[in-house]
Every structure is written in structure tokens, then in C-alpha cells.
Computed example of a mutant assay.
Amino acid sequence: MSRTAGSYIRWTLALSAITGAIGGSILASPFRLGFDVQRLLGFPSCLPSYVYFLDYRKPIRAPKRGDYAVFSYPATNLGVGAREGQRAVKIVAALPGELVEIAGTELYMRGVPWAYDRLWLAKSISGKTVGDFDAKYKVPEGTWFAYGTEKESLDSRYFGPVEQSRIVGYAKPLF
């Protein structure tokens, strides 16, 4: 083997080892960047930002109001949106013991109307009308109310509170 070929092989092996070590440490890290691909492609989206910093550190802490939680979707049986187990990012809008009321297209959290949003998605769900989602309840222990920021977001307004055990991490919108 020539000196040049041997040098090339050593450099290739060294760079492969370095790349593997860096890639492995990135994959082993609890931190990631997440992209809202739907928004980037020009489709309707449920997220308020294009890029997120994702934190998957264990153990997962209890959610706080205003957190952006990364969770696995529950079964919705609505025939729209994400399938059970797919990951999503939503805002933690209500915590255990807090009052949520859905009346027609109106949403009230802790007795306060969320006037900037309505139940737009209900019009798109086959076999459902807006009034089918009317509810008034206190968020049960061990659950939280997931809220999307876009008008057609599939969130707790349609499928109810989400179990805290479904949270896999938290996100921070970057831009």
C-alpha cells in the first residue's frame, strides 16, 4: 500500500470516529431542535413558531401553566389531526383543579373568556357540530389542558385533558 493511500485511510478512519462520537453524543443528548414542517411547507399548523428547542431530560417535571409541552397524542377517534402516539407541542393552558368551559364556539379558562380563539376545527370534523364539544369541568388530577395557538389546532378543546404521563419533554419557541 502506498504512503498516500495509507494516509488517506487513516484520515478517513479518524474523521469517521470523530463524526461518530459527535453524532452519538448529539443523539444521546436530551436536547434537540424541532421544526414545524407543516408551517415551513405552507400548510396549516398548530404551532406558534417555526423552530423549537426541545428538552427531553428525565425525569419529566410536572407541567406549569404557559409551558410548551411535547406529548404523545391520546386516541381522539375524531378522524382528523395526529394519530395516537404521534408527538405534538401544545401550551399548558390549565392545570389540575382549574375550571375549563366550552360553550358553543367559546372557550373559558378559569372563568375568563379566551376571546382571541374559537372552536374553528369543529366545522371540519365529519359528523360533529360545534355544540358536540360543550363541556364544563375542573381539570382532573394527573392531567392538563393542552392548547394550540392556531385556530384549527386539534387540542383539549376537542379531546379533553391530557394525562401528565404523556409528556415526553418541553419546548421553547425560537422563531
Rank of each mutant, 00 (worst) to 15 (best):
Gln86Val: 00
Gly104Phe: 07
Ala14Glu: 10
Leu154Pro: 00
Trp114Thr: 11
Gly169Thr: 08
Leu41Glu: 13
Lys64Gly: 09
Phe53Asp: 03
Lys136Pro: 12
Leu15Gln: 04
Ser2Pro: 06
Ser45Pro: 09
Ile22Gly: 06
Glu141Trp: 12
Cys46Asn: 07
Gly97Thr: 07
Arg83Phe: 01
Glu141Ile: 11
Asp155Leu: 05
Leu40Val: 12
Tyr116Asn: 14
Val51Cys: 07
Leu15Met: 12
Ser153Pro: 03
Leu99His: 09
Glu106Arg: 13
Ile91Leu: 08
Gly42Ala: 11
Trp144Glu: 01
Leu107Cys: 08
Val80Met: 03
Ile26Gln: 05
Leu174Val: 15
Trp114Glu: 14
Leu107Val: 12
Arg10Trp: 12
Asp117Pro: 02
Val162Leu: 05
Phe31Arg: 05
Asp36Ser: 07
Ala5Leu: 12
Gly160Asn: 09
Ser49Gln: 06
Leu95Trp: 06
Gly142Asn: 11
Phe53Trp: 06
Gly24Gln: 10
Ala14Cys: 09
Val51Tyr: 02
Ser153Val: 01
Gly169Trp: 05
Ala17Lys: 01
Lys64Leu: 09
Tyr56Asp: 05
Tyr52Arg: 03
Ser126Trp: 13
Gly66Asn: 01
Ile26Lys: 01
Ser49Ala: 15
Pro44Asn: 07
Ala135Tyr: 07
Tyr68Cys: 01
Ile18Arg: 07
Gly111Tyr: 10
Lys151Glu: 15
Ala122Tyr: 02
Gly20Pro: 06
Ser156Met: 08
Val162Glu: 01
Gly6Leu: 08
Gln164Ala: 10
Ser72Arg: 01
Gly66Lys: 04
Trp144Lys: 04
Leu107Asp: 04
Phe71Lys: 02
Tyr56Leu: 08
Ala103Ser: 14
Gly79Val: 02
Tyr108Asn: 12
Ala5Asn: 07
Tyr158Trp: 06
Ala88Pro: 01
Tyr170His: 10
Trp120Ala: 15
Thr19Met: 13
Val37Phe: 10
Leu33Phe: 10
Gly160Ile: 07
Ile18Glu: 08
Arg65Gly: 04
Ile102His: 02
Thr19Ile: 14
Thr105Asp: 15
Met1His: 09
Lys90Met: 06
Ile26Phe: 13
Asp36Glu: 08
Gly20Met: 06
Ser124Tyr: 13
Thr143Ser: 14
Leu95Thr: 02
Val92Arg: 00
Val51Phe: 05
Asp155Gly: 07
Val130Leu: 14
Glu98Pro: 05
Arg118Trp: 07
Leu15Phe: 11
Ser2Asp: 10
Arg65Tyr: 03
Ser126Val: 14
Ser16Trp: 07
Val168Leu: 09
Leu95Gly: 06
Arg65Lys: 10
Lys151Ala: 13
Gly131Asn: 15
